[in-house]
């Protein structure tokens, strides 16, 4: 009975926790960039203010029902993948779906957003989506290959079991230590996955007017913000679980997310923007061969 109550509490509060962590990470990101640019920067919880403001807009325009549903798909797809990611104290759902499921669940938000933006009938949005999907192809391929390598090595596709295996021997069994090539390749892919510079061509405000967000205002933009913040948590946690040995407690997890995000932000704040085809070429020239070499190494029994 106790476990059932615990489960319900987790199910209710897990998205809220992820959102809160996302708010702080997002605020930290903006603060970090500001400091690199020698500015003071906004508040630490600036994304929270933004969400409140956006959700309280009095008028909102929609371009049709698919526009509405797409935003729901966006938020729900991210929450869905959140539930299947094991974190300290909560891995109930990871027994019902493995990493392959998570990868596919992560496609729901992309597809949902793509459909809604399509209905807004704005070419800037469509161009943004076209770029987003092409970029998706760029970064997902090396990322999936690194995961395949990890799964093959450990003989399981379950994320929870991967975490357990990595935790068994301390730092020495972390994915990034045992398979640095895969870890580095996935780090590149993560940069693209999080749409941080130099892989930020999807938004490109000066070029295509923020692309997918062009026609999103008010609560639509607010929901995109909510999704973005949860997604920060989701993507960083996936990497932490795959290569940084997951975490035994929340403090450890948050610390790892913080370090990882700092790494990504420091790349983000000093780079310009790659063109779509250049970004894809980069993804296939650096991370993909790295991952491939790593996987061949695993197949040959090295490392």
């Amino acid at each position: 009975m106790n476990s059932v109550i615990g489960l319900v509490v987790w199910i209710v509060f897990y998205p809220l926790i992820a959102f809160t962590v996302g708010v702080f990470l997002g605020g930290y990101g903006r603060k970090f960039t500001a400091r690199v640019q020698r500015r003071v920067g906004p508040s630490w919880i600036q994304p929270f203010f933004d969400v409140i403001k956006l959700m309280r807009k009095r008028t909102n325009i929609s371009h049709g029902y698919m526009h509405d549903i797409s935003l729901m798909m966006l938020v729900s797809g991210t929450m869905l993948s959140l539930y299947f990611i094991p974190v300290p104290g909560f891995h109930y759902f990871s027994q019902f779906g493995d990493f392959v499921v998570i990868i596919y669940l992560l496609l729901i938000p992309s597809l949902g957003m793509a459909l809604g933006v399509g209905e807004t009938a704005n070419p800037n949005g469509s161009i943004g989506i076209s770029r987003a999907l092409q970029m998706l192809f760029g970064y997902e391929v090396p990322f999936v290959l690194t995961f395949i390598g990890m799964a093959m090595l450990n003989g399981t596709t379950s994320m929870y079991e991967l975490v357990q295996i990595q935790q068994s021997g301390g730092i020495a069994t972390w994915g990034i230590v045992t398979h640095p090539l895969l870890g580095i390749a996935a780090l590149f892919a993560l940069q693209g996955m999080m749409n941080e510079k130099p892989f930020e061509v999807i938004i490109a405000p000066h070029e295509i007017a923020t692309g997918p967000m062009t026609e999103m205002g008010g609560k639509y933009m607010g929901m995109m913000f909510i999704q973005h913040l949860i997604n920060l948590f989701v993507e960083l946690t996936i990497y932490a679980n795959l290569f940084l040995g997951g975490a035994k407690n929340w403090f450890e997890l948050l610390f790892k997310l913080f370090v990882l995000f700092t790494l990504i932000l420091s790349v983000n704040s000093v780079f310009g923007r790659f063109r779509t085809d250049d970004a894809m070429r980069f993804m296939w020239k650096i991370p993909l061969p790295l991952a491939a070499i790593g996987v061949v190494g695993i197949m040959l029994g090295i490392g």
Binding site: M55, K57, N60, S62, D68, G222
Partner: peptide
């Protein structure tokens, strides 16, 4: 529900 919490929307 999050969608409903936000203000009214109008289809244009």
């Amino acid at each position: 529900i999050i969608f409903l919490i936000g203000g009214r929307r109008r289809i244009v």
